[in-house]
Design a protein around this nucleic acid. Sequence first.
RNA 1: GCCUCGGUGGCUAAGUGGUCAAGGCGUCUGCCUCGUAAGCAGAAGAUCGCGGGUUCAAAUCCCGCCCGGGGCUCCA
Length: 628
Amino acid sequence: MRMLQIHSDGFGYELKRKAIKSAEKVESKTYSTDDSCLVNFIAAESSDEKNITKASSLTAQMIASAAEDVKEKNIVVYPWVHLTEAPAKPSVALKMLKSVAKILEEQGYNVVRVPFGWYKAFSIHCKGHPLAERSKVLDVETTEITEEEVTEGEDLTAIKAEEEAHSKFYIMEPDGSVTPVEKFDFTGFEELRLYVKYETAKDRTASEPPVHIEYMKQLELVDYEPGSDAGNFRWPPRGLTLKRAVEERVIKEMLEYGAHIVQTPLIYDYQHPSLKSYLQRFPSRQYVVRSGDRDYFARFSACFGQFLMISQAQVSYRQLPLKIFEIAPSFRREQSGELAGMRRPRAFTMPDIHEIVADVEMAKQSILKQLEFIMKLHAELEIQYEVSFRILRSFFEEHRDFINAVVARVGKPVMIEVFDERYAYFLFKGEWNVVDAQKKAACLGTCQIDVENSQRFNITYIGEDGKEHYPLILHTSPSGSIERILYGVLEQAHKDMKRGKKPTLPLWMTPVQLRLVPVDDSLIDYCVELGKELDKYGIRYEIDDRSLTVGKKIRSAEKLWIPYICVIGEREKKSGKVSVRRRAEGDQVEMKIDDVAEEIASKTSFAPKQQLMLPKMITKQAIFSREV
RNA sequence: GCCUCGGUGGCUAAGUGGUCAAGGCGUCUGCCUCGUAAGCAGAAGAUCGCGGGUUCAAAUCCCGCCCGGGGCUCCA
């Protein structure tokens, strides 16, 4: 906000014509007074948009203080955009000026607010005393520091630092060579080209909706819930089956990695000292939960719950690296315009592991180990992904061998962002991204070296010397949120379809792996018998017991992308085999039911057995959003 | 949050001021007992997102709100 203040003998204006479409409606086009008044020409700036309330109240404060100095009760608030080169949007400016006027009125001043959005003539007569002409500049953020009560350790400079930090983008190849992105030959790396373009040029135009949204409804996986807040989804049984299958898969991997599995609360106290400080890092995007006369926020990640838990645990150097894992919902109240299906919801399920390490050396070793499960899980998603690393320049230069080893393990060219000043809690961050049909990118897995939060949350371990030490913390999501995974696999299915392949979901997570299709009603009982064999292998199947033609039943199963469709008639009952349509192979073969089960089981042996979470008989299943 | 486009039975979708709001899918009933992507016939199902306004008359025009898509911004 910028402001020119004139203490004047009298003031008048006349509206000439509208300067902008959204000019305020007015009753009278002229105003004039001979009374003494303090005229404030005010320009709202784009920086004020970050916190209009604060900007308004500080501006009002400045005016009141100036009015106090010259003992003036009459105030004129005059919108004058020409004071700044970075004006706020008109709507914001108007909101702010209205708010300033209101605050001053409440304090007992006589306020005249000059209409917004008009070309005006005005007359003024400056009193000419030493305090009669003054100008003020308000920076919402820096002023906030001096005006607000700030507890020790709070770091308000971070957000600003992030804006000002400047960084360079490179492509790093598995052999360790580094090329600035603008000089790299992307031939053969089309998705990496798109990803880099998205990250650096910030080209974000899309005309079509994200393709996964259509599929998520048709396949009856997940759907909007108009009765909830935007970005909070409902999961019908097919989708829930998939979600659980993925969750259980990640949990299994984390247990094998040696993690402690925990669960922590969903809501947290705004007033808790560590959390208060942590929240200063981030814009206010929290869901607020009112309980009694106190406010809590719904967690936006699993970090604090785990940090608070570890900070009160007994940890010895003998247990390092110590691994804590949790998978549970998190909530971020993103701006409504940012929401986009499963790419960006407001409620999501995030697998989150925190690894406590003694020092940078141990951190590097652990990262190399984490890379193994991150790479493995992403491979199991059967999606194309692009990897990037964001690294503090000093760390990049001092640990070049480590960076080389990391990129070599990824095994293909990656994007590297090297930044000069640390703008967040990490000095090293890896991201595994998908690029979708809209040419937009979103991050799945991530791993970060956090050098800040052990102090903030007072997390310590007892070293060999018997003394307390602050560790480093590795923040890692082995797979990204379940919602993002679904987004990734559906977008991948779309890419496959464009290349002429039938779209599929990975066999281990697809809700129904096999459907038994009897050619007529008399064979339903036999299908139930066959189902018992499938149960022995933990195969997820259902039986199409509807009275439909075989063609119709096949079509129905194909529309749901069911990977194995088994047709059963008298012939099969006699031969003891079933006729199998295999989606991935695109063929039709005669097999014994045990062999089909064996095949599915062996292709999915790495995943825990997951039950299908609805009745097996299709006539007993409600229709939520599938077509047939 | 701002800008912009949209919302019509469970799904899809025609209708842009004037009779009982078209069709398709699905659902239900009956027939057919069926061999690898849509068998036949009939029936039920809609306060046209919600609220207000303009008009003799509103799904249709205007205002506000809710939900969704896209853009800006943002992405801990």
